[in-house]
Simulated scan of single mutants.
Amino acid sequence: MTIAVGDSLPEATFMTPTEKGPAPLSTAEVFGGKTVVLFALPGAFTPTCSAKHVPGFLAHAEALKAKGVDTIACLSVNDAFVMGAWGRDQKVGDHILMLGDGNGDFTRKVGLDLDLSSFGMGLRSRRYALIARDGKVAALAVEPNPSGLDVSSAEAVLELL
């Protein structure tokens, strides 16, 4: 079952890259008491994700913050090392929090997993964006096509805020 507007985000532990190596962050630490835009995608360094999704949120980071967003987070079913390398490649700096959901625990719990085994990629996340306020889903936009970028783009999220 897919998470819906009004639902609380499930407890999970993400791994995030830091200067000292991967560090755990709980759902409560990421979302508690804040307005967070979380955008999730099938994989780091993949075409649409690298060419459009992350760059769009990076380009609109200030506009999102001006609308009351405390944190912009990017989630992928990749490990923290990959998310760190991808964040450096995309030059996200401290504008986007890179979250590794390496085992796909959070992704499965919110019901937005995607089996890309036929492409040799295994379990991944569907492409989506959500707005959470104090750990509750205020808006959710899931792309019908994994390579599409219509409803989960930074521009679409700005419209939802």
Rank of each mutant, 00 (worst) to 15 (best):
V37A: 13
E29M: 01
F39H: 03
A44Y: 05
G56V: 10
F31D: 02
G33P: 13
K34C: 06
L25E: 12
A44W: 02
V36M: 03
T48Y: 14
F45L: 13
G32W: 04
C49N: 05
L41D: 12
T46G: 14
V54A: 05
G43R: 09
G33K: 06
L38N: 04
A40W: 04
C49E: 01
F31P: 02
A51H: 08
L58Y: 07
T27A: 09
T46A: 07
K34T: 14
L41A: 15
A59Y: 04
G32Y: 03
F57K: 06
T48A: 12
G32V: 11
F39M: 07
S50L: 04
T46R: 07
A28H: 09
S50H: 11
S26M: 10
H53A: 13
A44F: 06
G56P: 06
F31R: 00
G56S: 07
V37Q: 13
L58A: 10
A28W: 00
V36N: 02
K34G: 09
G33E: 13
T46L: 07
K52E: 14
F45T: 08
P55A: 05
C49D: 09
F45C: 12
A51V: 08
K34H: 04
F31Y: 15
F45E: 12
K52C: 01
V54I: 15
K52G: 01
A40I: 03
A59G: 01
T35V: 12
F39R: 07
G43Q: 14
K34R: 15
A28D: 14
T35I: 10
V30Y: 00
L41M: 09
L38V: 12
T48K: 05
P55T: 11
F57Q: 02
A28Y: 02
V30G: 00
L25N: 00
A51S: 13
G43P: 13
G43W: 15
T48H: 08
T48D: 07
L41P: 01
T48S: 13
V37S: 13
A40F: 01
S50W: 00
G32F: 04
S26T: 15
V37E: 14
H53D: 12
